[in-house]
Design a protein around this nucleic acid. Structure first.
Lengths: 238, 238
DNA sequence: AAGTCGATATCGCCA
DNA sequence: TGGCGATGTCGACTT
């Protein structure tokens, strides 16, 4: 099912959009508009030509001709409505918790398209942190000879540790995994887990912390060294 | 300028897309397709109906009828091309550094639209961390009586501190600002700055660290307490 | 509903 | 160009 209107009057456009909304169609609207947003923050966007996408799950996206991110949006689950008011076609999207409202006001419409999509397949993605974890559990020696994983997602008072294990000497080892080159934030994260475990175990045993990632930035390397933490290079298969 | 083709043959669709690409048009293509991506990670997506947007800045977005984020994409600056090969229309987007390739293969096309957008205005957004910083610099007493900002973005060996100042007793105070409720990561960030300053100044003066945000999570509050850091509630005007 | 963290995060700024 | 941190981050998963 597809349906396209070019240069429709505002009332015709309104009918088409409403039909799209009630038919669970993906609806796109293109034309000169201004945009107002109020919610977690507030924004205004003066008159210009943009592309608006309304999804049947309640998502609204306002795209300019630049950038990967929409200039304005409303997340899935929002309530969408359309009205014609004072020579403008206004698309409104509202949600609660948090309270947020998006209004797109069109002066005219270049085209409207409403299409019901048939799509039963999901994305299959590889090369994630979860893939790296599987690799390490399958070949623990890639960390170092004698490394033995004991648990994944082991809970600490500072959160769950990616991989918790022991080295050849029986020392506790905490691994923090990252799928890409890491900066200071990842070092801070690993340090929080080590500190928490030292407290949780109220034991003076030495706990090793190893950051596992393809590479580290200079400042992250320095922080690792200052905190007595280690680094092992590894990249998720892809 | 707008132009829409419904149910075009693959060759006609190819011509229209190519015209769009050379005219700096926003081009949308809708139809049953499969998608392959290889780059920082890898993904495949089996046959289904999706909406593809090609922007003149090199952005490519593949949207299903669910979710705010595209199921596949290529960032601005990528090279876009289209070809018909073995009864398929294939949109290819490639970039380097990092090397990444996206291929969308259409079996048929429901419609193609190419439009050159006129848009001269930028988004005006308020309620950001920068707004919160301005509020504090204008009214430092909102942190505490006697607080005096001395510098913003003061450099430390662990990065730049949001606001650097002194309290009524002459103690150094470091503020880390967040526009929304914060978790453990923000505490780690503040702690890195405090540690770095303690090292940088090689001085045993007590340095206070204050997290300024609308609120904190329970675990973040506990981490603050353990690290001897403080919290002040503040929300950016909106 | 809130907390926590990963992400092909994206984006902007600055060295 | 890489490093670094903000984002109306989003999204998935757990509690």
């Amino acid at each position: 099912m597809y349906d396209v209107l070019t240069q429709p009057a505002l009332d015709s456009a309104k009918s088409k959009i409403e039909t799209g909304l009630s038919n669970a169609a993906l609806t796109t609207v293109l034309g000169p508009c201004s945009v107002d947003y109020n919610g977690r923050a507030s924004s205004t966007l003066d008159l210009g030509e943009r592309h608006v996408m309304l999804k049947p799950d309640g998502t609204t996206l306002v795209h300019t001709d630049e950038g990967q991110k929409p200039v304005n949006w409303q997340p899935p689950g929002s309530d969408q409505s359309v009205r014609v008011d004072d020579q403008e076609l206004i698309i409104e999207s509202v949600r609660t918790s948090p309270d947020e409202r998006l209004e797109v006001s069109f002066q005219s419409i270049q085209f409207v398209a409403a299409v019901t999509l048939q799509d039963t397949h999901d994305l299959d993605l590889v090369g994630t942190e979860a893939d790296l974890k599987r690799q390490i559990l399958k070949q623990p020696e890639m960390i170092e000879p004698g490394f033995t994983p004991k648990a994944t997602e082991r809970k600490t008072s500072a959160g769950a540790v990616d991989i918790f294990g022991e080295d050849a000497d029986g020392n506790i080892v905490v691994l923090e995994l990252k799928r890409r080159r890491v900066g200071p934030d990842a070092v801070g994260q690993l340090k929080r887990y080590i500190d928490a475990l030292n407290r949780d175990l109220h034991d003076d045993a030495y706990i090793r912390g190893i950051l596992v990632a393809p590479s580290v930035t200079g400042r992250a390397r320095q922080l690792l060294s200052e905190q007595g933490l280690e680094f092992v290079a590894a990249t998720p298969d892809c």
